[in-house]
Design a protein around this nucleic acid. Structure first.
Lengths: 331, 331
DNA sequence: TTGGTTGATGTAAACGATTACATAGCTCAT
DNA sequence: ATGAGCTATGTAATCGTTTACATCAACCAA
């Protein structure tokens, strides 16, 4: 592997000149510049990343820490991140499904210029200690608590509210909610939106209508079974995400109920599968790829900016996507 | 950020001793070792990755180059790779959707110890030039041509053959095939399997039964329309992947045909969505996550091994998953 | 001529680790 | 007592860059 020294020797100049040509390019004679360029190409030289980032203390790499790599949600986030990072010539160092936050961060230390972290359980208690203080960090879908970091998320509250309002508009007064994972920020916000809509619209308000879940398909199935055993059944169900909605639908179906005729169902996230199901799933659409892009843009921004800038909170809009599962559309 | 020097000064020893304690740990007095460990923890020291890899010429990072980051296939591959890499303490540097191979490789040079490349168009002509010669490389789902690299893929031929045999077993004699993208190795292999089965089983062999496609849903839709206009319609369709099968089903449906009653449909890949569709899609299952894991295991292996080892070709088995869309199962 | 200015290039000191080698103290057989 | 052999530790070179500073030639105004 050719180094800068090889290029310098071959071109008969000093390493400083080579470096100047290949970088800024200030103050070099045109003929020298051409010579160095040619030699560099001939030797197929490319600078050693580690050496460069040692001296410049810039890695040109963004760390991405996700709770999980499974499912379409994460793949879309990553796609958005990669797209945006590429545009600015940054690399993406990916880590998913780490048992703990701290060791994962520690392992990335010194290898990245900034971090995008999605860690739903993130709260003040396990904020990553002093590790996070040293590089710019963007938090994705994390509670905007007192953490000293930029935050970006989606309009969970508004989306949930819109879904419940839509179901109410179809005549439903008894709408159940299958909750997301406990201690999860998105789940809490969606629940808040559900409750607010129930209150504002004067719908049946009954603690028995809120059943716990954890975002998994199995949990959706189980929750639906619980709802079926209630003395008075809900006429509509709003699941905190699409996976649980899918589980719930299959539970209803095996209990002999028709969706949407006997019970209407709505989900959240609008994963690609939602439109291919039978019945197609009414959901709250989130542009996940854009979420990743936006987070990356913000991080790149923070890398330029002076360190003492103010915190920014941002939420991306959500839109209701009406399909057959809620009963609004004819077959 | 504390460096090794800070730790050395604080502990009253030399940097060499600190390094020895934190790495091999050979030849250090127990009391010294404890002291250094304590100081390092107090200062929240962690070694600087760039500095380390400069001297050791090891980055402990694996580069992953994918043609695209869209869809469940890639997210599963990545998951498998990350899982395996994590086990050995390796990082994953991800790049997707690069316009060209060479610049992408060049950008990664010196940042990774090895590469996992999935580049379906890869052939001798654009083999990445001398760039690939310098680090161990594992090729994923690439044609095992004369390239001097390890290869890992899936049993496309066998899977396609099994699908056609299954459809033939259900009584179909006129089975169409919607082809994958041109110049794509997987597509070519699946086509080969289809043709072999048609020949071996003595089914209707007609060039008009093979329609082009490109793995996209839209292409599947279009291909189905083409098939519908043929004077003699096929009774079954085998699409080269699930996306196209989905597109084809929706084309059949809007033409008033029932699947599987009027036409049977089979796909390839068994993406998660396949089982949730209506009708659920018969497909050829591929353990994509395992593919990623296996590729990573092989790469890590190659990093240890002496450089002059022989090339290895490997294909992971595929299994037929029978669901409703082929007509074998009752409603 | 002289000295200042300018532009092109070279010299060498970082950056933060690893590691071959040197050194110094200690034990122990002779 | 002496030196060989060991262990624990320190010294310093090294990895491949960037960059502040030094140098040096050329030019020009006084």
């Amino acid at each position: 592997m050719a180094t800068i020294k090889d290029v310098a020797r071959e071109a008969g100049v000093s390493v400083a000149t080579v470096s100047r040509v290949l970088n800024g390019g200030h103050r070099v004679r045109e003929s020298t510049r051409a010579l160095v360029r040619r030699v560099a190409r001939e030797l197929d030289y490319s600078p050693h990343g580690a050496a460069r980032s040692l001296i410049t203390s810039r890695t040109h790499t963004l760390g991405v820490l996700l709770p999980d790599l499974y499912g379409e949600f994460y793949s879309e986030v990553i796609r958005g991140i990669d797209q945006r990072a590429q545009r600015d010539g940054y690399h993406v160092l990916l880590a998913g499904e780490r048992p703990e936050l701290e060791p994962a961060l520690r392992a990335m230390r010194g290898r990245v210029d900034g971090l995008i972290i999605m860690w739903p359980e993130l709260n003040a208690r396990l904020s990553g200690g002093p590790l996070l203080a040293r590089v710019p960090v963007i938090l994705l879908n994390c509670p905007p608590t007192n953490l000293a970091h930029d935050t970006i998320g989606i309009e969970n509250y508004e989306g949930a509210y819109a879904m419940v309002r839509h179901l109410a508009g179809l005549g439903h007064r008894r709408i159940a909610h299958i909750r997301g994972a406990p201690h999860n920020f998105d789940a809490a916000e969606r629940l808040r939106g559900y409750r607010a809509a129930v209150r504002d619209l004067g719908l049946d308000s009954d603690p028995a209508l809120e059943v716990p879940g954890d975002f998994s398909e199995a949990a959706g199935y189980e929750a639906a079974r619980v709802l079926l055993e209630r003395p008075v059944r809900p006429t509509a169900v709003f699941a905190a995400n699409d996976c649980m909605a899918i589980g719930a639908i299959s539970a209803f179906r095996s209990a002999g109920l028709q969706v949407p005729e006997d019970v209407a169902v709505g989900g959240f996230d609008d994963i690609p599968m939602a439109r291919y199901m039978e019945p197609a799933l009414t959901s709250v659409h989130v542009d996940i790829c854009a979420l990743g892009e936006r987070a990356t843009a913000r991080l790149l921004d923070a890398l330029q900016a002076p360190p003492g800038r103010e915190l920014r909170r941002e939420t991306l809009p959500t839109t209701l996507v009406v399909r057959r599962s809620c009963g609004a559309l004819a077959r």
